[in-house]
Amino acid sequence: MREFLANSMFFGVFLTLLAYCIGLFVQKKLKHMLFNPLLIAIILVIVALLMLDIDYDTYYDGAKYVSYLLTPATVCLAIPLYEQFELLKKNYKAVLCGIASGILTCLVSVFLLALLFRLDHATYVTLLPKSITTAIGMGISEELGGYVSITIAAIILSGILGNIFAASFCRLFKITEPIAVGVAIGTSSHAIGTTKALEIGAVEGAMSSLSIVVAGLLTVVGAPIFANFIA
């Protein structure tokens, strides 16, 4: 049985989709932010792999086809953005200042916390690109001499945090303008957060999509400068 599953073409994809469907079902039944379909799916897949004693590489061999369309899907974030472009034009100053202040906050907060925890240079630069999309973050981390696998983990965890808590967090801190909610989600938790922003509303989704691009590019410029601050 285990042998069969490990060699199956479809097991990884099926397990991923099944776990996500269970996640959606649980969320529908128990309406609480912690019952987040993405989080439930991730936990269920991990538990299933541990119980069936299947290692990650074997699972990923099949499941990678789920991620195969990630680049085309990201490209299509241009569609919600295009549909809300008039609104963006009217508010471009607020949006750009919001994203820039967010990225500055990311770099400064990582710097200060790194001082507090006495992190060395490599560990510090590993975390600098933590709030931007994975592909850009990996590149920056590699260039600055960070631990790329930890950068990926930090980026994904930031995304999941945003996906789960962003809606409640914005409500708690009275961030209610849809444009501001979108910028807050996209700047702090890139594409993984953006999928949540798109569920909240069209404006939120569009602004979050834009924030992925702008925040990514600003970090390309800002992270190398901040990298010099801890030798």
């Binding site: 100053k93 607020a94 949006v95 200042c97 919001g98 994203i99 202040s101 967010g102 990225i103 906050t105 990311c106 907060s109 990582v110 916390l113 975390l127 933590k130 709030s131 930031s158 945090l161 945003g162 808590f165 962003a166 967090f169 914005c170 801190f173 961030i175 209610t176 303008e177 444009i179 501001a180 909610v181 910028v183 807050a184 989600i185 700047t187 702090s188 938790s189 924030s211």
Partner: peptide
């Protein structure tokens, strides 16, 4: 850092 970024970017956008 994630929550600080969320707070500042959201508040700055909303303020403007």
């Amino acid at each position: 850092s994630t929550f600080m970024v969320m707070l500042i970017s959201g508040k700055v956008t909303q303020g403007i």
